[in-house]
Design a binder for these strands. Structure first.
Length: 355
DNA sequence: GACGCGTGGAT
DNA sequence: TATCCAAGCGT
């Protein structure tokens, strides 16, 4: 439900600012053109979920060069896709990206649905992404609410209810200021504002184009919005990983599709539980690296104890896996935790070689 | 609605 | 150094 007056002023103020100050981003059509490619918009939106623009940049360029169309992506091998995504995090996105591309290719003739509902039915496309693609790629009026919009709207309207309980009110407020025309530009303008001016910490209210529309700027601390519930403390866990080497190769496994680092290549490892002395995947003369690999995940921090050993040419650990050439370890697509473990082994080898 | 799910940069 | 934070989604 759109309310005339203040809401109209907010949209026009913001769009006028956007026309001059819009960030130039690789996935954005040039100013004045209506050439937004749904595939590119969708690809960028999925990569940008919970991920910074700076981190996405090189991945977006790599993906677009390698898979220029949704059909190209749909035809890719799972392992290639997962390896290309390695390092970007939240790997369920990569699995859903491929599932979505294949669904578009198979069920929609290679053409993305142009409605929010149609988009919403695709794997990995939630409320935010469906609205963003509908607005940005198809020019439809959709209420696009991400963390930036939540913050900007909570401040514009000085919404004091803590998140996540405030979400319905924030969404209604966002709906009230979303214009019928240029909804895609409006959404991107809101996100630009949140990323560059109405930032989480130290917002630059002095140069904000919505300063005279904002309720929070009249308060003692605009940055206090949105109010958030207290966070839980992050537990710490210890795990073990094994570097099994044989004739210039290392044994890599593929992690189960569900759960942490799902579907990714990895070193064999223990559960991240409390098992003090887990059983190695193969009997060998193990050496343990002195310094654990420290890594922080969203919901726990981990100290990975890395063990390494050589095995004989006829030995192979039980279960599925592959001998991967160590001089091409960079191409294995290891997630960051295991890439660091591999680095730790390499460094120890180099140190040993000097002694 | 809560929880699980990565990573790296900024403060 | 520790904490916060980033264009969320699926269960």
């Amino acid at each position: 439900m759109r309310v005339e007056g203040r809401a109209t002023k907010i949209a026009s103020d913001l769009l006028a600012h956007y026309d001059v100050h819009a960030r130039r981003l690789p996935w954005r059509a040039p100013p004045g053109s209506n050439a937004a490619d749904p595939y590119r918009v969708w690809l960028s939106e999925v990569m940008l979920q919970q991920t910074t623009v700076a981190a996405v940049g090189p991945y977006y360029a790599k993906f677009l060069a390698r898979w220029p169309t949704v059909q190209d992506l749909a035809a890719s091998e799972d392992a290639d896709l997962m390896a290309a995504w390695a390092g970007l995090g939240y790997y369920a996105r990569a699995r859903n990206l491929l599932a979505c591309a294949r669904a578009v290719a198979r069920d929609h003739g290679g053409v993305f649905p142009d409605t929010e509902d149609g988009l919403r039915s695709l794997p990995g496309v939630g409320a935010y992404t469906a609205a963003a693609v509908a607005a940005i790629a198809f020019g439809q009026r959709a209420v696009v609410v991400d963390a930036n919009v939540e913050r900007v709207v909570a401040r514009l309207f000085a919404i004091a209810t803590p998140l996540p309980a405030a979400r319905p009110a924030i969404r209604a407020a966002a709906d009230s200021i979303t214009p019928d025309a240029r909804a895609g530009d409006f959404a991107q303008a809101m996100m630009d504002l949140g990323a560059t001016i109405c930032t989480a910490r130290n917002p630059a209210c002095g140069i904000c184009p919505l300063r005279e529309d904002c309720a929070a700027v009249l308060t003692a601390d605009p940055a206090a919005y949105p109010v958030k519930a207290a966070k839980k403390v992050r537990p710490h866990r210890t795990g073990h990983g094994w570097w099994i080497e044989r004739d210039g190769h290392v044994w890599l496994v593929r992690r189960p599709d569900k759960g942490l680092l799902g579907g990714m290549r990895a070193l064999p490892s223990s559960d991240w539980g409390d098992a003090p002395d887990p059983t190695p995947p193969i009997a060998a003369r193990w050496t343990t690296i002195e310094t654990d690999v420290a890594h922080v995940f969203t919901h726990f921090s981990l100290a990975l104890r890395v063990h390494h050993a050589h095995v004989e040419a006829n030995e192979t650990p039980e279960g599925a896996g592959e001998w991967w050439p160590i001089d091409r370890i960079g191409e294995a697509g290891l997630p960051t935790l295991f890439a660091r473990a591999a680095d730790a082994v390499r460094k120890e080898r180099q140190a040993d070689a000097r002694n």
